[in-house]
Design a protein around this nucleic acid. Structure first.
Lengths: 147, 147
DNA sequence: TACTTTGTTGACCCAATTAGTCAACAATAT
DNA sequence: ATATTGTTGACTAATTGGGTCAACAAAGTA
């Protein structure tokens, strides 16, 4: 049940875009550097995100990429499903015809519940949530700070 | 985030043992036939289950395998973790040292919540639950039955 | 005892997927 | 023009998943 690096790197890529959200497009090169991921690899990850319209890009000097929507309108589930294909633990949950047992299979029901639980978690968290969590991790409230 | 066939076949194997629970050991050959899975493959799946003590076996004529515990004492989570290694979506959740970002990484926190949600579902279901679900699927109550 | 049955083990293999690189190309700003 | 930056498709390397084979070990049965 491992998550692919596509999904993990992709999430960090988008988090980076959310954190640096501003006027300027952000360069893939910088994201690659900040997140310590190969630029060549990121170039491929970005494709489905652009295709889905979550990210836009501009080529050429001072080009780059940016989020098209506000971070609190982007659910993690959406990202993961996009990069991972689906969150289903087993094909038969999405495509009943892929297995003749589907209608009578009790384990299939369990995998379906598993998928729902996963989506439940992932759809309850937005990019904005990640941004806030990140801020509170890296810059703890001053009242907490001690000598 | 796909479940391996190990976990799926293994679950079905144990369900089969729970359904046929009785005096006689059950032969792997029969399970393979009923579940339409290669016997040669099942032989390997059974190994960790025996090692963990969930299943016992006897060789030779009229040998076979059987559950050592009552089905309502066997959680699905236990089975999956055994066959899949762990339910963690990412190594760093189980082994923080595997990534230098661990302590400050907000995506790691999310993957950790994901793991917990999955374990929550899987640990709330026992083999006995599966047995009952199976029975109610294959032999629906007579009051429901209609002409 | 000899033979049959059944589980056990380790080595091996094949295919698919994942992760990642390279190089040529297309667009855009200066 | 030319620097810069994203885009694309082909390619490769490594890993994993799924599965087979063959030799072996134990336990019953004639």
């Amino acid at each position: 049940m491992r998550l692919s690096t596509r999904a993990r790197y992709g999430t960090r890529l988008l988090l980076e875009l959310a954190l640096q959200r501003g006027q300027q497009p952000i360069q893939l090169k910088d994201v690659a550097h900040n997140q310590q991921v190969s630029l060549l690899y990121l170039e491929h990850l970005i494709k489905p995100l652009i295709a889905a319209g979550i990210v836009k890009s501009r080529r050429g000097a001072r080009g780059g990429i940016w989020l098209t929507r506000s971070p609190h309108e982007i659910k993690l589930g959406e990202i993961i499903r996009l990069l991972e294909g689906s969150t289903t633990p087993v094909d038969c949950v999405d495509i009943p015809e892929s297995c003749p047992r589907s209608s009578s299979c009790v384990t299939r029901d369990v995998w379906s519940e598993l998928k729902q639980a996963m989506n439940g978690v992932l759809d309850s968290i937005t990019l904005q949530d990640l941004v806030e969590r990140h801020k509170s991790k890296t810059a703890p409230s001053e009242t907490v700070y001690q000598i």
